[in-house]
Design a protein around this nucleic acid. Sequence first.
DNA 1: TAGACATATTCCAATATCTAGATATATAAC
DNA 2: GTTATATATCTAGATATTGGAATATGTCTA
Lengths: 115, 115
Amino acid sequence: MGDKISRGLLRSRERTFKALSDGTRLEIIEYLKDGERCVCEIIPHIGKAQSTTSKNLGILFRAGILDKREDGKKTFYRIKNPEIFRLMKDADSLNLKDLASVSETVDALRRAIEG
Amino acid sequence: MGDKISRGLLRSRERTFKALSDGTRLEIIEYLKDGERCVCEIIPHIGKAQSTTSKNLGILFRAGILDKREDGKKTFYRIKNPEIFRLMKDADSLNLKDLASVSETVDALRRAIEG
DNA sequence: TAGACATATTCCAATATCTAGATATATAAC
DNA sequence: GTTATATATCTAGATATTGGAATATGTCTA
C-alpha cells in the first residue's frame, strides 16, 4: 500500500494516454483492428491530408502502439500489441458504468415522479 | 469483425484518455489509490497552486474518474471506480513489453559484439 | 536510366487547446 | 469573521492539430 510510483512509470503512462487522446488516432487504431493496412488505405479511410495522417501514424508508432512493415513501395501498419484493445475495453466499461449510473438515476427520478 | 464503432464511444474514449494524459492528474489518481483525501491534503501533496489543483480535480471529476463527498467545510475526493487501475496496469504492461523488447535488442547486440 | 508512385519528413502558418499561476469572488460551514 | 473550496478572469507560455507545399528516399516500371 502507498508505494511510491516511479516518475518514469508516470511519464510513460502519460505518453501512452497522450497518444490515445486524439480522435483521429483512435480511429486509426480501430481501423487496424482487423489486421494490417497500408498507408494508401489508411489515408482515404481517415479522410485527412497525407501529411496529417502520416504524422499521426508516426505518433502512434513512436508511442509503441503500432508496428510497421515495408513491402516494396508500400508501408503497412498494424497494431503492435493487441493488449491495446483491453485498454479500450476498460475505458469503455468505465464510461458505460457512468452511463448506467445516470440511467439508474433517471429511473429513480421517474419512479419518484410517476409512482 | 469490422463492426463500425460508434462516434459516441470514440468520443468518450477520447475524453477519458485526455483526462489521463497529464502528469499532475495521474499523480492525483495515484495519491487517491489508498482512499479518499480532502482537497486540503491533495493541494500540498501535489505542490501546485490551489486554483490549479482544484481545476485538475474538476477535470477528473467531470470525466467520471473521481467522486466527491462534502463534509462540513471540507471536500473529499476518491476514486470513483477502481477499474481505473486496471487501465493503468494495462498501460504499464504495454510499456513494459516495449522495454522488454528494447532490452532483448540490446542483449542481442551485446552478444553480436562481444561474441 | 528516366519517371511514376508511396511515404516520411520538414517548414510554415493558422488555430485551438492546455497548463499554470495570480487574483478575486462566491458559497457554505464553522 | 475565518476557513475550505469552487469558480471565473486574465495572462502567458507551451503544445497540439491540421493543411499545404516542398523535399527526400526508396521502389517499381517502362
